[in-house]
Write a protein that binds this DNA or RNA. Structure first.
Length: 618
DNA sequence: GCAGTCACG
DNA sequence: ACGTACGTGACTGCT
């Protein structure tokens, strides 16, 4: 056995590296003490990378530790070590993990310790820290990574184990990705930092337990977040089936399209269609006038500007308002094809497992408001109007796709939280909320083309975002004066929104600029935009509507069919013969009362592909 | 590493 | 005193 010494917060710690059967017994003896005493033990892994479900994925090191002692097991070296890690992991009554979703799935896939076994025994220090302060360092918070948390709560001199390791990889001539897969298993820095991660995690638990008690963070909230993390990890493990042949052909088709229009753009002197500067210069050279500027002062040549120059509306149909600029047309078409190929089609193909499934990371507690995010691939942002990308994602063999989405959930949540009397009454009466608002704001004025209703809908969004008339005017394209006057009436008929905003802002100021949501979530506000409190309250509570619905779906026994959460929607793959029943169960979980406001949702049963839910044929 | 852009709710 | 549109992930170009 080799032991690396280190000092954390002035205290010496030991990092034992297990080398043979005798060391394994010493590790097991240490673990037995914690098991019989019911003490929590920190767990972490070092692996060949992030693609947990790829065919050649390897668990390299498994680490266990408390606040003083860490044990590093070279699992990659053989069964002896893997068996010891599995045995102890199965027997531990309490496991502490920083970002459990990742290590749960690694243990599930590489050690044979099921997600279902580990989840009820786990406390996740990343979840605990996020409930204290969800902000990253760039946003003025502590951050939620092991490094910034350790520096803040344990030892300002705590090493940045990831950053320092990357430096070691470079010195060995390896990239970051190649380094994690290829660094020698017995490299002393690798071993030491592997051990430090569990020592720091164990200490973080101790520190964060104190902070939670001090701040009065509800244990039920912590428990609920762990459950949502489990449900999301379950969805990640299941993954989604990809139509590989279709996706390959799609990638080729998008490639050809991008090249064709890139070639056209080159005729006008644009070498890189993704360079806004080159595009702007070329357009000016063609005699076009560009007026809009970005925050950084550059001439704006985004999609909206280019579509107008190409004489196209937002649905890419000819407007007939001017002669189309051929360069603008070529640039938007090439950019779209290129982005859809690289961000979607190719990412699907790159992240496939051996069975042709993608397993996106579902970060269950990602945004400042608690909203979830999905990465690798970013399945929450697939183009929706054109179904060519969504068609690549399939329900399982013999299954159909179902999606169930809340009806205008943020408007309803706002009505509930701010107790907006007339809004609640309209929702309870089953009225179309935006038409109802139009009638309140404009009385009997005729609205043949629905423009007044659309403006009221835009104002509703403006309220949810905490915005004013200029923002609504910008987004809806309506005249600012008209918006301003409509908003005055709006505030008059729904006075509770402004009142709630003021109350929330006042409470936040009295509480260290933190607004607390109905579920007990602490959301720090930025001092220079406290108006955002309406959005934070509403977005966060809407996220918890989805979170509670996911828990209820698990209770209803449909967890195996869940595939993705998309903010106000759940995507489901269900056996064709059970689709009606499963859709009903999902719907039931998404229909409930929130402070006297009905939150409702309805399920659509599609065909085989995700695209079929957006009107596609397959 | 930042700015600009674009996909979503 | 006043008015402020919200939250993400990912790619490309450029410094």
């Amino acid at each position: 056995m080799r032991t690396h010494g280190y000092v954390i917060a002035g205290e010496p710690v030991d990092i034992h590296v297990v080398e043979d059967a005798q060391d394994v017994r010493a590790f097991q003896d240490w673990a037995a003490g914690h098991i019989s005493a019911g003490r929590p033990v920190a767990f972490d892994t070092e692996t060949s990378g992030l693609d947990i479900f790829s065919a050649d994925y390897r668990l390299r090191l498994a680490q266990f530790g408390d606040q003083r002692t860490a044990w590093v097991l070279p699992v990659e070296r053989g069964r002896l070590f893997a068996d010891a890690a599995r045995r102890v992991l199965l027997d531990l009554p309490r496991v502490v993990i920083h970002h459990a979703a990742f290590d749960w799935l690694v243990a599930d896939r590489c050690l044979g310790v099921p997600l279902e076994h580990l989840y009820p025994r786990t406390v996740d220090t990343k979840i605990m820290a996020t409930l204290v302060d969800p902000r990253q360092a760039q946003e003025g918070g502590v951050g939620t990574g092991l490094k910034p948390l350790s520096a803040h709560y344990i030892d300002p001199a705590a090493p940045d184990t990831q950053e320092d390791l990357t430096r070691v990889f470079r010195s060995l001539g390896l990239t970051k990705a190649a380094g994690f897969a290829g660094i020698p298993l017995d490299h002393p820095t690798y071993e030491t930092y592997a051990g430090l991660d569990v020592l720091l995690t164990a200490r973080l638990l101790y520190a964060l337990n104190g902070v939670h008690a001090e701040l009065g963070i509800r244990p039920t909230l912590l428990e609920y977040e762990h459950r949502i993390a489990f449900i999301c990890a379950h969805m990640q493990r299941t993954g989604l089936l990809c139509d590989v042949e279709y996706t390959k052909a799609l990638s080729d088709r998008l490639h050809a399209q991008a090249e064709e229009f890139e070639h056209k753009a080159r005729r006008y002197g644009v070498e890189s269609i993704n360079s806004p500067k080159q595009v702007a210069d070329a357009l000016l050279g063609m005699g076009e006038t560009l007026t809009e500027r970005t925050a950084g002062g550059a001439l704006r040549v985004d999609k909206a500007v280019l579509l107008a120059l190409a004489d196209l509306n937002t649905s890419w149909e000819r407007l007939g308002a001017r002669t189309p600029n051929p360069l603008a047309d070529a640039v938007i078409r090439s950019k779209r094809a290129g982005k859809w190929k690289s961000a979607y089609a190719d990412t699907f193909l790159q992240t496939l497992d051996a069975e042709g499934r993608v397993h996106p990371f579902i970060h269950s507690l990602a945004a400042r408001t608690g909203r979830m995010s999905i990465t690798r691939p970013a399945l929450q942002t697939l183009p929706g109007r054109d179904v060519m990308i969504r068609r690549a994602i399939l329900a399982d063999e013999g299954h159909v796709m179902i999606s169930c989405d809340f009806d205008a959930v943020e408007m309803r949540v706002m009505a509930a939280l701010a107790d907006v009397r007339r809004m609640k009454a309209a929702i309870l009466a089953g009225e179309d909320l935006h038409s109802y608002t139009r009638s309140l704001v404009y009385g009997d004025a005729p609205d043949p083309d629905g423009r007044l209703r659309a403006l009221c809908k835009g104002i509703g969004f403006g309220k949810i975002f905490g915005g004013g008339a200029s923002g609504v005017a910008r987004m809806t394209g309506a005249d600012e004066g008209a918006v301003r006057s409509a908003m005055r009436t709006y505030d008059h008929v729904f006075p509770e929104i402004k009142r709630a905003s003021n109350t929330w802002q006042r409470e936040a100021m009295a509480n260290g600029m933190i607004t607390t949501t109905v579920t007990g979530r602490r959301l720090p506000l930025d001092r220079d935009r406290t108006y955002a409190v309406v959005n934070y309250q509403v977005q966060s509570a809407a996220r918890d509507c989805l979170g509670q619905a996911l828990c209820d779906m698990q209770d209803a026994g449909v967890l195996d069919y869940l595939r993705l959460p998309v903010h106000d929607e759940v995507l489901v793959s269900a056996p064709a013969e059970d689709a009606q029943d499963i859709a009903r169960a999902v719907e039931k979980a998404m229909n409930f009362d929130l402070y006297g406001v009905p939150i409702t949702a309805s399920a659509d049963i599609g065909k085989r592909s995700w695209g079929s839910l957006k009107g596609g044929d397959y």
